[in-house]
Amino acid sequence: MGKGIFIIGTDTDVGKTFVTAGLIYKLKENGYNTIAFKPIQSGGILSADKKTLIPPDIKYIKEICDIEDEYSNMNTYCLKEEVSPHLAARIEDRNISKEKIINHYKSLLDNYDYVIVEGAGGIVVPLINNDYFIYDLIKDLNLDVLIVAKAGVGTINHTTLTAEFLKQKNIKSKGIVINQYNDKFYEKDNIKVISKLTKLDIVHKIKNIENPTVENIKSEYRDLDLEKILNLFN
């Protein structure tokens, strides 16, 4: 039986997919059988034959981590509209089943050492109507979370509110990854304040890559601390 962790962002576009890929890359590099799981992806892109939708987050992870698994093994629902999952499902007349997502996750646990589950947006994103949210899914999957936050202005507020909300919902946070770090003086202060307010471990600071290539992305991933990653699952 494998173990899982849920990757949650303080907002949209903070780098959840980038961090998810990094964890998977580092674990696979060290011989661990690891997979990404994106329960619901909105903003799907058409395949080359224009017959199916491809989840772009999983596409990036597959390519950067050399994963050969089918998209369907790593994603339960892929929706076309790039809006909140509950709204995309309503627009496209799709029914989202939490039971299907939970069973999908359990099947991955049976076949992999580690399953990295990536959310959609922040912690209070609705998945099914206005009745079932990201935090509900985390609790149903019985997972701890890793918070991904930006380094820059505004991150103290976003990160602290996210951490406090998780506490209110009795969801355990295992730490914070700071993304898009530029080694600026105010970013260093942001991190100190976040660490003091949340009392959470800063697992890693990922440098901002201005001109990303496959090689410099992988180089950044190699700098991740394997021991800290493994501790996320304990």
Score class of each variant (00 low, 15 high):
residue 94 R to W: 07
residue 216 N to F: 03
residue 211 N to R: 14
residue 192 K to L: 14
residue 117 V to D: 01
residue 73 N to R: 15
residue 205 K to H: 05
residue 101 I to V: 11
residue 229 I to Q: 10
residue 39 P to R: 00
residue 216 N to P: 04
residue 181 Y to M: 06
residue 55 P to W: 02
residue 93 D to C: 13
residue 138 I to D: 00
residue 80 K to E: 14
residue 7 I to P: 04
residue 217 I to A: 05
residue 217 I to F: 03
residue 18 F to L: 10
residue 69 D to M: 11
residue 195 S to P: 10
residue 8 I to G: 06
residue 174 K to L: 05
residue 207 K to Y: 07
residue 175 G to Y: 06
residue 161 L to F: 08
residue 75 N to M: 04
residue 130 N to T: 12
residue 172 K to R: 14
residue 26 K to C: 09
residue 151 A to D: 06
residue 5 I to C: 13
residue 61 I to G: 01
residue 178 I to L: 10
residue 67 I to W: 03
residue 171 I to R: 09
residue 101 I to E: 04
residue 88 A to R: 01
residue 148 V to N: 00
residue 104 H to R: 02
residue 209 I to A: 05
residue 2 G to F: 09
residue 77 Y to R: 07
residue 220 E to P: 02
residue 142 N to Q: 15
residue 167 K to R: 13
residue 90 R to L: 15
residue 215 E to Y: 12
residue 80 K to W: 02
residue 141 L to V: 08
residue 225 D to G: 12
residue 130 N to F: 14
residue 230 L to S: 08
residue 41 Q to G: 00
residue 159 T to R: 03
residue 221 Y to E: 07
residue 160 T to A: 10
residue 223 D to R: 15
residue 137 L to P: 01
residue 94 R to V: 15
residue 45 I to F: 09
residue 136 D to I: 03
residue 56 P to W: 01
residue 96 I to Q: 01
residue 6 F to I: 04
residue 175 G to H: 09
residue 206 I to T: 08
residue 216 N to D: 05
residue 192 K to D: 15
residue 79 L to Q: 06
residue 158 H to E: 14
residue 82 E to D: 15
residue 77 Y to G: 05
residue 11 D to P: 12
residue 24 I to F: 04
residue 23 L to C: 12
residue 174 K to W: 05
residue 211 N to G: 11
residue 10 T to N: 05
residue 100 K to S: 10
residue 187 E to W: 06
residue 127 L to V: 09
residue 21 A to H: 00
residue 127 L to G: 04
residue 77 Y to M: 02
residue 29 E to C: 09
residue 12 T to L: 12
residue 26 K to L: 07
residue 230 L to C: 12
residue 30 N to T: 11
residue 67 I to P: 04
residue 20 T to L: 02
residue 80 K to G: 10
residue 77 Y to D: 13
residue 47 S to K: 01
residue 193 V to F: 10
residue 86 H to Y: 10
residue 77 Y to F: 13
residue 188 K to L: 07
residue 58 I to L: 11
residue 124 V to P: 10
residue 131 D to E: 15
residue 221 Y to F: 15
residue 195 S to Y: 06
residue 129 N to C: 09
residue 49 D to Q: 01
residue 218 K to T: 07
residue 28 K to F: 08
residue 49 D to A: 02
residue 163 A to L: 02
residue 81 E to P: 10
residue 28 K to P: 07
residue 37 F to S: 00
residue 110 D to Y: 11
residue 117 V to R: 01
residue 223 D to N: 15
residue 223 D to L: 15
residue 203 V to P: 00
residue 184 K to Y: 10
residue 155 T to L: 06
residue 85 P to Q: 04
residue 62 K to E: 02
residue 147 I to F: 08
residue 168 Q to T: 14
residue 219 S to V: 12
residue 205 K to P: 08
residue 224 L to G: 09
residue 145 V to R: 05
residue 234 N to C: 13
residue 196 K to C: 03
residue 72 S to C: 13
residue 217 I to Q: 03
residue 52 T to M: 11
residue 40 I to A: 01
residue 73 N to P: 03
residue 59 K to M: 12
residue 222 R to M: 14
residue 22 G to N: 04
residue 182 N to S: 15
residue 135 Y to V: 10
residue 176 I to K: 04
residue 163 A to M: 02
residue 47 S to C: 07
residue 156 I to P: 06
residue 197 L to I: 14
residue 66 D to K: 14
residue 61 I to N: 02
